[in-house]
């Protein structure tokens, strides 16, 4: 059964697309979010629930 599926499997490009898409976005986002310059802003965001 499994062999049958594997033999018929012609969508390998999907795996590649998924991988590149996912990993690329992940690394980009990580770099973006962890930029040093944004510390002040994140401190402000953190404090939002504690107002009122």
């Amino acid at each position: 059964m499994k062999a049958l599926y594997l033999a018929n499997y012609k969508l390998v490009f999907l795996n590649c697309i998924a991988l590149v898409l996912f990993f690329g976005i992940f690394c980009g986002a990580l770099a973006w979010i962890y930029r040093k310059s944004s510390k002040e802003f994140y401190d402000y965001m953190k404090s939002l629930p504690l107002e009122d």
């Binding site: 986002a29 979010i33 962890y34 994140y42 401190d43 953190k46 404090s47 629930p49 504690l50």
Partner: peptide, 11 residues
Amino acid sequence: RPIYSYRLSII
């Protein structure tokens, strides 16, 4: 007290 890491929450 504020959430430990706001950056982590975004991720």
